[in-house]
Design a protein around this nucleic acid. Structure first.
Length: 481
RNA sequence: GGCCCUAUCGUCUAACGGUUAGGACACAUCCUUCUCAAGGAUGGAAUCAGAGUCCGAUUCUCUGUAGGGUCACCA
């Protein structure tokens, strides 16, 4: 009987290069000082960087480095359908732009640093297979030949009978297949996935420790979850457990949506005989939608994408400091006391993260941004706004470049000291704020009326404009004016 | 629907079981002012509801309500 089980495991995964022991040895426990945290960010290359990814990256970065630990990135590219060409570069660029201090992982041009790689899941298949075979041999995993259609029918039936849905217990038809039957189907080339054989009982509560939420209880997992898909790639759950074990992650700080699957992960760590890392689940950033709030979503909200902040021209540090403040609200007090320190010096505390999702507040972002820009020198402001304008507003860029000395003087007005002017929150404001210094822009700038008289309807705007022009004389002295 | 999480000014939040419930943003008023800003001063503004424990509850317990998350061969 168990001979056949071994034969099946060999059939499914022949010729493996390593044993589990090899891998344990290849990726030894890290030699770090007591209390050092190893954290990671694990983005999927979908071509889209969510502001929540940046939030999470900043938190992971700070927690690792303020404890003299290590932070790495791992590309989670096991979903072939969502994979987008060039997406890894997009991720790397944004991590760089937001000054995320990566010690290990993929850097520019596909080059990796670090001893715990490869750092792309698609290149770690053999590692996953090693442990998959281990579970298969132990009888804690099994091939499942159910088709998508079979599964749909099952959940439909479960719904009709008002039973908690899922591939579980007696519903898990493949879990008790005769070995002979499995052998036969395998030889017939029938497609299959590998499932984990769960011994969990949903009625049992297990205590979980969450660095953000505190001590909580969750139900044991009783679902036979898929750990390897029919394309041979692992699912998130399986890859996470193996990767974070072998990469010796000590603190998994990830999005809140994973909290519910914690029992699955704990169960897998147990089955593999490993100690689970510490977990902390970060609540999503939300926004107001009508009179209810919801997670900022990439489909509906432009501000979900990090590119939005670049387009609008928010300085990177403004976004970072805003997010830091969202993470730990005492950041702003610290900032007030330490106006000159780098925000990296701030000691972030995971337990001070909010347990519920925070609403993204643009007003506050703008304020943070104004403070940051007010602290810049005129030279920096010219450079930064020019950098933005070259990308998004060539007309403005031309004017700024035309007479750099003049530009410098404009931005030098009332700049510096405690009462430095705070009129610019983002580089796209520059046009409105200083456009009138440039005749070419000003003359053609109908947009000023829209801006200054916003909230007033078009007809009234015209009326005000006409009345003004009636009495306006360019030659008036300032007193007459 | 099951399970889980969360609940303090409009927003982000602070408060060993004992505070006139604090701060920041936003808002309002006033001052300053050749414009726009900036700055200064002042102000309004909150413990979801109901029970219980306690001398005392924003804090602990229960119930309700509301919002969020999750229930894939996606991560």
């Amino acid at each position: 009987m168990s001979d056949l089980r071994k034969k099946i495991a060999d059939k499914i995964l022949p010729n493996l290069k390593f044993s589990a022991e090899d891998l344990e040895e290849k990726y030894p426990k890290r030699k770090l000082k007591e209390g050092a945290c190893v954290t990671r960010i694990a983005p999927s290359p979908t071509g889209f960087m969510h502001i929540g990814n940046v939030f999470s990256a900043i938190i992971n970065d700070r927690i690792a480095h303020q404890s003299d630990g290590v932070m790495f990135s791992r590309i989670e590219d096991t979903d072939q359908k969502r994979k987008v060409e060039g997406a890894v570069d997009i991720i790397i660029n944004f991590l760089n732009e937001f000054k995320i201090d990566l010690d290990e992982g993929e850097k520019k041009d596909g080059v990796e640093t670090g001893e715990y790689g490869p750092y792309r899941q698609s290149e770690r298949i053999e590692i996953y297979q090693t442990f998959l075979k281990f579970l298969l041999e132990k009888g804690e995993a099994y091939p499942c030949f159910c088709s998508i259609k079979d599964l749909e029918e099952m959940s439909k039936k479960q719904e009709e009978e008002k039973i908690r849905p899922g591939y579980r217990g007696e519903w898990a038809v493949c879990r008790n297949l005769e070995h002979e039957k499995i052998w036969e189907m395998l030889n017939n080339g029938k497609p299959y996935v590998i499932r984990f054989k769960s011994e969990g009982n949903f009625e049992n509560k297990i205590p979980v420790k969450d660095l953000v939420k505190g001590d909580r209880e969750l139900s044991e997992n009783d679902l036979d979850i898929v750990i390897q898909k029919s394309d041979g790639l692992p699912t998130y759950h399986f890859a996470h457990v193996i990767d974070d074990h072998l990469m010796r992650t000590t603190h998994v700080l990830r999005a809140d949506e994973w909290f519910a699957s914690l029992p699955i992960h704990l169960q897998l760590f147990g089955a593999l005989g490993w100690q689970a890392p510490n977990y902390g689940h970060i609540s999503p950033i939300q926004k107001m939608d009508g009179d209810s709030r919801r997670k900022i979503s990439k489909r509906h909200d432009p501000e979900a994408s990090v590119t939005y902040y670049d387009e609008e021209g928010y300085p990177v540090d403004a976004v970072i400091e805003y997010l830091l403040n969202l993470a730990n609200s005492d950041f702003e007090d610290w900032r007030k006391e330490n106006p000159k320190l780098l925000n990296r010096e701030f000691q972030l505390k995971i337990e001070r993260l909010s347990g519920s999702g925070a609403l993204f507040d643009f007003q506050k972002l703008k304020d943070v941004s104004k403070e940051i820009i007010a602290k810049m020198t005129a030279k920096e402001v010219v450079e930064e706004s020019l950098k933005w304008a070259r990308k998004y507003d060539l007309g403005l860029a031309g004017q700024l470049e035309n007479d750099k000395k003049y530009s410098l003087q404009i931005f030098d007005i009332e700049r510096g000291g405690d009462k430095s002017r705070k009129d610019i929150a983002k580089w796209s404001d520059v046009l409105y704020e200083i456009g009138y210094f440039f005749d070419e822009i000003f003359d053609s700038a109908e947009l000023y009326f829209d801006k200054i008289l916003s909230g007033i309807d078009k007809d009234d705007q015209k009326l005000i404009k006409d009345k003004f022009l009636e009495t306006y004389d360019e030659k008036d002295s300032k007193d007459e004016w």
